[in-house]
């Protein structure tokens, strides 16, 4: 159903420090895109720009086909209801239980009969893969993985069309991280979400995403599947994708697909 998010010529500056200079990015509906790049390439700044927490110095941002930078505050608020955001640390409201956290956006923006409200909240908590008894707990009583899931439940509260996730698997053990990746894919398939995830996790990049947007040289330097980016020759991409561990993923990928690993072997030899 077309393009959910389209950014053109985004410029972000802090004083004289230019973070993005003419950055373009577009996301297809139903895709899962990993946003990667070395530290200091402005991943978080870009995410903050895309979810309208920061106005870029120049450029154009279209969400669901509408130019959001020209919008009034109220129109933007409407837009925000269609975007679910999972912040890096979870950003759960510490004085509210998990259930209250999830119900907050629904109470604020939704229109659900009072009798069904709590059930909706509990459904979201279950969708995010949390056990039922987590609903009445406070964020300080949750483990790191559960905090991420609770934050995901809150991000899903209004059935957003676009889900933006900042480092969903950082700080999780590999098993929880893999489960989280699967959860995101499952939700995409079931709810038709479009997902943009900032990540460093090779598992998330190779197995948890349809495509990868690589930030470098103050713009999206390359966009494609992880396998495609492995074959690119820009030095930044070579450094990022042809490390030992990344190549292991590449080999696995080609073995799974073609039964050979000659491409990766060639790349490693270069």
């Amino acid at each position: 159903m077309g393009v959910i998010l389209e950014a053109k010529g985004i410029v972000n500056r802090f004083g004289t420090n230019v973070v993005h200079d003419g950055l373009d990015l577009s996301l297809e509906k139903g895709s899962i895109t990993a946003l990667v790049g070395g530290s200091g390439t402005g991943k978080t700044v870009l995410v903050r720009t895309l979810i309208m927490l920061r106005a870029p110095q120049a450029g154009e941002l279209k969400l669901f086909g509408e130019n959001v930078l020209a919008m009034s505050f109220n129109q933007r608020q409407r837009m925000r209801e269609r975007i679910g955001v999972l912040f890096q640390g979870g950003a759960l409201f510490t004085s509210l239980t998990v259930l209250e956290n999830v119900l907050l956006p629904i109470r604020e923006h939704g229109n659900v009969p009072a009798e069904a409200l709590e059930e909706v909240g509990r459904l979201k908590i279950a969708l995010a893969g949390l056990p039922a008894d987590a609903a009445v707990k406070y964020p300080s009583e949750l483990s790191g993985g559960m905090v991420k899931r609770a934050a995901l439940a809150r991000a899903l509260a209004l059935d957003p069309d676009l889900l933006v996730v900042d480092e969903p698997t950082s700080g999780l053990d590999p098993i929880s991280a893999a489960a989280f990746d699967e959860l995101i894919i499952e939700l995409r398939d079931l709810l038709g979400l479009t997902v943009l995830q900032v990540t460093h996790d090779l598992d998330s990049i190779w197995r948890g995403s349809d495509q990868v947007a690589f930030l470098g040289r103050k713009r999206v330097l390359a966009m494609g599947t992880a396998a495609e980016l492995t074959e690119r020759d820009e030095p930044e991409l070579v450094a990022y994708f042809r490390g030992k561990r990344s190549l292991a993923y590449a080999n696995q990928f080609w073995r799974d697909r073609e039964g050979t690993n000659h491409t990766a072997a060639q790349l490693a030899a270069e």
Partner: peptide, 11 residues
């Protein structure tokens, strides 16, 4: 039948 417009459903 979305979260924004369910208010009038009386089970």
């Amino acid at each position: 039948w979305t979260v924004h417009a369910l208010g009038r459903v009386r089970l």
